[in-house]
């Protein structure tokens, strides 16, 4: 188990450990069921081809969910996701690896709450970035390390 993520240790430019996911058609069906999303281009090969795709395509929101996993795997219980936004720029097909990445763009404290802004993206094996995202993490204010940091430098030894 990794150590607890500490707000004061985070720097702009820090990269999140990449997450690789290779969704299967079965996973798309499971996601469609779990998310109550009945759009047919995600499980009906013929319908997807009729709509001009090479086959069934991965849900944008499943790629967003992978980015969500990337973020929560990184921050663990130290923070929660306050803002999360994704844009879908291209299609992906099941059976091909998707690489989910993120980087820190800002750290700040707002109303006493330490916040970390992230850029997120998914790229496929062809190198295309098919999903872009942004997230803001809110660190739990009862975090001891933060209390120590905000009192004074002297007390911090």
């Amino acid at each position: 188990m990794t150590t607890r993520l500490r707000f004061e240790g985070i720097r702009v430019g820090d990269q999140l450990p990449a997450l690789v996911r290779t969704p299967t058609t079965e996973q798309l069906v499971r996601y469609a069921g779990a998310a109550s999303d009945p759009a047919r281009i995600h499980f009906d090969e013929a319908e997807a081809r009729r709509r001009g795709f090479d086959g069934v395509i991965v849900h944008g929101l499943l790629k967003a969910a992978f980015l969500g996993e990337l973020v929560t795997d990184w921050c663990g219980g130290s923070a929660w996701v306050k803002r999360f936004a994704t844009q879908y720029r291209g299609v992906d097909y099941p059976g091909r690896p998707l690489v989910c990445r993120g980087a820190v763009t800002a750290t700040r404290v707002e109303h006493g709450v330490p916040l970390v802004d992230l850029d997120l993206w998914v790229h496929n094996v062809e190198g295309a970035t098919t999903t872009r995202g942004r997230a803001t993490l809110a660190f739990h204010v009862d975090d001891r390390s933060l209390t120590a940091r905000t009192t004074s430098e002297q007390e911090d030894r």
């Binding site: 069906v29 069921g33 009945p38 047919r40 499980f43 090969e45 319908e47």
Partner: peptide, 23 residues
Amino acid sequence: TTLEDLVRWAGAIDDYSPIHFDP
């Protein structure tokens, strides 16, 4: 009958036998 009917059913009862969605 449509694949959508079957996928909705699979999701509702949590049964993902592939013969019901994978040709």
